[in-house]
Every structure is written in C-alpha cells, then in structure tokens.
C-alpha cells in the first residue's frame, strides 16, 4: 500500500473526487465495465449485485457490464470490510485498472459499519483505497445499487445529502 493510495481528507480529496467523476463522465459516452472484489463480505451483497443482471433490472441496457478482468474495468466495486488478507489482491486490482477509474464501496461493511479496525480488517475501505461513491445498505437492494452506479457515472445526482432523517422534516418522509 502506497501513501498516495491512502484516503486523504479535506478540499484536495474533494477536488480529486470531482476530477475523477468528471473524467469518468467524459468517458462514459461509451459503456462501463465493472470489476467486483469481495474483501470478506458475507456474500449477500454479491447476491444483490448478481440480481442487477436479472431481466427485472437488466443492467446491460444501461451500458453497464461486469468483467472478470481488472484491465478491462472502469469501475472497482468493493464489498466486505477490507480484510487485511485481501490487501495485495485489492492493490493489484486497482493498479491494473486503466485511468480513469472509480471505486464504489458497497454495503455497510466497507463503509465502516459492521467490523471495527483490528488486526484482521481495516474496517473501512477508504483507509485502503480512494472511494468515490458510497452505497449504504446491509445489503443494498439492487435498486439502491443501480442508483449508486448511476450516481457514479453522473446520470443521477445523489439525494442523501438533502435528507435529514427526521420524521417531521419537509423532506417528506412518509411515516
């Protein structure tokens, strides 16, 4: 793991994310290929990811495809709590992907919700890789994943920063 690959806070990181998203959007007039890496997930996230290919969601109509080869991938989709045993695999996969590349963290595990940092796991993916889009959920439903993917490629804008999670808010939570 190099210093440059560690997640950094502050305005520089925001500029970097904005630039990455811009580069990715410029490129996504074409199709997008996704490589998934499981860093110790319970496989329920994988089960939901697989459902994206079912006729009901039909991911391919959006020009999004899964690929087994990181060299063909534009997007790295990571599940699991970033266990340390997967460090080498994760870094090799990330390094093998051509620029521009975006990283999407899927589920509560890589967002730091389930496993704390310890000798086995980093506990959160942004300690290891620069994460561009976070998709919460345990597991995120295919619809939530689809929204995350479309946010990542700039076809939808994110909604969660406008939500207050307060019942009486004008955000219109139907409680």
């Amino acid at each position: 793991m190099t210093g440059a690959s560690l997640g950094a806070g502050g305005a520089a990181a925001e500029d970097r994310v904005a630039q990455r998203l811009h580069d990715a959007r410029a490129m996504f007039g074409r199709s997008l290929h996704i490589r998934t890496v499981d860093t110790g997930s319970c496989a329920v996230c994988e089960s939901e990811i697989r459902l994206l290919l079912a006729p009901h969601y039909d991911l391919h109509r959006l020009g999004l495809f899964f690929t087994p080869a990181p060299r063909h991938a534009d997007m790295l989709m990571v599940t699991g709590p970033a266990v340390r045993a997967m460090d080498t695999a994760l870094q090799k996969t990330y390094a093998a992907m051509p620029e521009p590349k975006i990283v999407i963290a899927v589920g509560a595990c890589p967002l730091g919700g389930v496993y704390p940092e310890d000798e086995l796991a980093h506990g959160s993916l942004d300690r290891v890789l620069p994460v561009d889009v976070f998709v919460p959920g345990c597991p995120p439903s295919p619809l939530a994943l689809l929204q995350g993917l479309l946010v990542a490629v700039g076809r939808l804008s994110e909604k969660v920063s406008g939500e207050s999670f307060v019942g009486s808010s004008p955000g219109g939570l139907d409680l």
Binding site: V17, D126, V135, P136, G137, S164, L173
Partner: peptide, 20 residues
C-alpha cells in the same frame, strides 16, 4: 420509524452523517 429511504448513494462519506 423506518425512513423508507433506500436511494442512499453518497459521493462523500460525510454526507451520510445525520445530526438529529
């Protein structure tokens, strides 16, 4: 109560921290 919100993708981790 359940928020019934599931379109929760965020471009920054801090967007997911909600102060009530």
């Amino acid at each position: 109560r359940p928020s019934r919100l599931f379109e929760l993708a965020a471009t920054g981790r801090e967007q997911l921290l909600k102060r009530i």
